[in-house]
Lab assay of single mutants.
Amino acid sequence: TGEEYIAVGDSTAQQVGDLTFKKGEILLVIEKKPDGWWIAKDAKGNEGLVPRTYLEPYS
């Protein structure tokens, strides 16, 4: 379980453990880390770190 967020920009994984996503994708945020990198899952079930500045709450 988690909260749904929509990507407001494209982000390409810079290192192992990062999640690549495109603008408009809905991501499920699993954990919000205080350093600004959140753990999220995409629609295909891929999981990784995403920069919170690229996400907005999805409603």
Rank of each mutant, 00 (worst) to 15 (best):
A40N: 00
R52K: 14
A7V: 06
V29N: 00
L28K: 07
A43S: 13
K44T: 09
P51C: 15
G36L: 04
E4F: 15
L55F: 06
K32D: 02
S11N: 13
T20E: 10
I6D: 01
V50C: 05
I39K: 08
D42F: 01
E3T: 08
Y58W: 11
T20R: 08
Y58F: 10
Q15H: 13
G48F: 05
G17A: 05
K41G: 02
W37T: 10
R52G: 15
N46Y: 06
Q14M: 13
E47T: 14
K33R: 14
L19A: 01
N46I: 07
G45E: 03
D35S: 07
D42I: 02
S59H: 13
V16E: 13
T12C: 14
Q14W: 12
P57T: 05
E4D: 06
D10V: 03
L49H: 08
A7F: 08
G17F: 06
T53S: 13
T53P: 08
A13Q: 08
G17K: 06
W38G: 02
D10G: 06
Q15L: 10
V8R: 08
A40C: 15
D18K: 14
W38P: 01
E47I: 15
G2I: 10
T53Y: 13
Y58M: 10
L55Y: 01
V50S: 02
P57G: 04
I6A: 04
Y5K: 01
V16H: 11
G45I: 01
L49G: 06
F21R: 00
E25N: 06
E3P: 05
A7P: 01
E56Y: 08
W37E: 05
V16C: 10
Q15K: 14
W38F: 05
E47K: 11
E25C: 06
G9M: 15
I26K: 06
G2N: 09
V16G: 09
K44H: 14
R52F: 14
I6Y: 06
D18Y: 15
P34H: 10
E56L: 11
V50D: 03
P34L: 10
A43Q: 11
K23H: 05
D10M: 04
L55D: 02
D10P: 06
Y5L: 01
N46W: 04
Q15V: 11
L19K: 01
N46M: 07
Y58L: 13
Y54T: 07
G24K: 02
G36E: 04
E47P: 04
D10A: 07
E3Q: 11
P51T: 07
V50M: 02
G48Y: 05
V50K: 00
A13P: 10
S11V: 15
D35F: 04
K23N: 05
T1M: 13
Q15I: 10
G36H: 04
L27Q: 00
S11E: 03
G24C: 06
T1K: 12
I6W: 05
E31H: 12
I26W: 05
W38Y: 06
R52C: 15
G24T: 02
V50N: 01
F21M: 03
K23M: 07
W38L: 04
L27C: 02
I39R: 10
G36V: 03
L19Y: 02
Y58Q: 06
S11D: 03
D10E: 07
K44P: 02
K32T: 04
A40Q: 00
V50Q: 00
T20V: 12
E56H: 08
A43G: 10
T12S: 10
I6N: 02
A7I: 03
N46E: 07
W37G: 06
V29I: 11
W37I: 13
G9S: 15
V50Y: 02
A40Y: 02
L55M: 06
G36S: 04
D35C: 08
A13Y: 09
N46Q: 09
L28D: 02
T12D: 13
Y54H: 13
K22F: 09
K23I: 08
A7W: 06
E25W: 09
I39H: 07
V8H: 05
P34Y: 09
D18F: 15
F21S: 00
I6F: 05
K33S: 10
E4V: 14
N46H: 08
G48D: 02
K23A: 09
I6V: 09
P34N: 12
K41S: 06
G2F: 13
